[in-house]
């Protein structure tokens, strides 16, 4: 897995790529929680995620809760087919705000 963090219109955009699994999810978790700690809205771009497991999903849930507790927005953008399937299995596809594009996510969460 690789990742990058950017900021646009006051929103943190965390991009995850590749496989988010037991080995790589601790890094994803760290990056996501650091973004949430900035108390700005956080968007996670999942377009390049080929695989995500329960530990990766758990990091997303934890970040959702962290942003909720400091009152900022959280959304998933450009969710890949592979990631969407796992969100559906977890019945979390309705819990997370999911946006087709980064622009939609910024409008929706900022």
């Amino acid at each position: 897995m690789d990742h990058s963090v950017a900021e646009k219109d006051g929103v943190s955009i965390v991009t995850l790529n590749g496989d988010v699994d037991l080995e790589s999810s601790p890094i994803a978790r760290e990056v996501l929680l650091a973004a949430a700690a900035k108390k700005t809205a956080v968007l996670v771009d999942l377009a390049g995620v080929d695989y995500i497991d329960s530990s990766g999903i758990a990091s997303l849930v934890e970040t959702l809760q962290a942003t909720k507790s400091n009152g900022s927005g959280f959304g998933l953008v450009q969710v890949s087919e592979a990631a969407l399937r796992v969100l559906e299995l977890a019945r979390l596809d309705k819990v997370f705000a999911i946006y087709p594009t980064i622009e939609d996510g910024i409008t929706g969460e900022s």
């Binding site: 329960s54 758990a58 849930v61 934890e62």
Partner: peptide, 10 residues
């Protein structure tokens, strides 16, 4: 909605 415990569900 809590992290963890998802794997067995999958």
């Amino acid at each position: 909605v809590k992290p963890g415990g998802l794997g067995t569900h999958f």
